[in-house]
């Protein structure tokens, strides 16, 4: 991929993170508007996905650099540090806006928290691998991160028809 495209993408993700931070404050300020909370969660997920996508581009040799992997790991680390209560507040299941979170997520809340907390060591490993810069280590860390995401997606996410 063209380095200019990469830079533009990186700038866009930084902008996304900043927007999300701002949106987070607003979301809290206006109270529990479920639609806004769902949108906020989508942004959190998109930031994590954007990060993992950049890592995959590096692993696949599709243009991303180790520096991109480092920023991706930093963005993912910031997202997984969030309290799961704020990411998955009550009243934001399927039916609210375009939420894809199954009601089972709240019915099995300890499991959901376990999955969420499982993201943290995966993000830490990704950061460590990114700092080391070794492609195989990064690939393996990416696999661990992907597995950590899939735990929750498998049990608690439903793609909307």
């Amino acid at each position: 991929m063209d380095p200019r495209v990469i830079n533009a993408l990186a700038a866009a993700s930084v902008a996304g993170v900043l927007f999300l931070g701002f949106g987070g404050v607003v979301g809290t300020a206006i109270g529990a508007d479920p639609v806004a909370l769902v949108k906020q969660r989508e942004q959190t997920m998109k930031t994590m996905g954007g990060g993992l996508g950049a890592v995959a581009k590096f692993v696949k040799g599709e243009g991303a650099t180790v520096a991109d992997v480092r920023s991706a790991a930093a963005a993912i680390t910031e997202m997984v540090a969030k309290d799961p209560h704020t990411v998955f507040p009550q009243g934001t299941a399927i039916g609210v806006s375009d939420s894809e979170a199954k009601p089972e997520l709240w019915q099995n809340w300890p499991k959901a928290v376990e999955y969420w907390n499982g993201l943290k060591p995966a993000a830490a490993r990704l950061t460590e691998a990114a700092n080391g810069g070794d492609r195989t280590q990064i690939a393996q860390a990416m696999q661990v991160m992907s597995k950590a995401c899939s735990n929750c997606h498998e049990d608690f996410r439903q793609k909307k028809p």
Binding site: G51, L52, V55, A56, K147, S150, E154, F156
Partner: peptide, 21 residues
Amino acid sequence: ALLLEIGLLPDGDVAGGAMAE
């Protein structure tokens, strides 16, 4: 190939539901 191996989609999303399994 990467989707099949680790469930990662090109946009960085991770497959869920039955495909995760």
